[in-house]
Amino acid sequence: MSNLLTASIGRKLLMSVSGLFLILFLFVHLTLNSFLLLDKVLGFKEVGQMFNAGVHFMGTNPLIKVIEPMLALGFLIHIIYSVILTVQNMKARGPQSYASGNKTSDVEFASQNMLVLGIVIFSFLAVHIMNFYMRMKGFITWEAGEVEFPFFGSMAKGENAYALVHETFKVLPIVLLYIVGSVALAFHLSHGFWSSFQTIGWNNSKWMPRLKCLSNILAIILGGGFSVIALAQYLFF
């Protein structure tokens, strides 16, 4: 175990594990977001009740309290190491570029631009956190009032998070920003997912093509999911 993190492969392991952890988080997040559309479908009395119940669950669950700092740490590690690795790589490449360019075929666009895609995701993330997280956690005051919603068989009272989301997604530039962020995420994951298994050392000529296929499916579900929800809120709610 000694000095694992001073080795290139050790640092890449951190990128890979933190990346996979972030993907796991994104699935939980997408599930919750899907409530924004689902309560209409599932026949809740008022639009927004299911989402509010979900937010209430997340806000009051002790497990989430533990996971939240872990998530922040995951982001921090992923971002810090992505910058360290990319700077090292630029140095290793050297200052001279090829005058005749790079005509190697069949190289994924995403794989060559992970940092750029990451920065787009990060910029989106900053706006996203300002929009929602800070307000829901009470760092920024916001007037939405309390509402009642069904919560595990009884009724519960909590803040009207749905109203906040609904208001936010009425603004077209914000919706567009969400779509840009989601598309960058989709590209990031179309390479990142299989790459992280390659990094961990799962080498298998049978499974690699399957993982690559799964990467694309994952990218479409997550990138598409977040975009569709934002767009649907803008158009239909």
């Binding site: 890449k12 090292q88 790589n89 140095k91 290793a92 190697t104 994924e108 299989w194 790459s195």
Partner: peptide
């Protein structure tokens, strides 16, 4: 030498 990001250009 740099850190591999699995671009696959080498293999090609």
């Amino acid at each position: 030498f740099g850190n591999c990001t699995n671009t696959g250009a080498c293999e090609v």
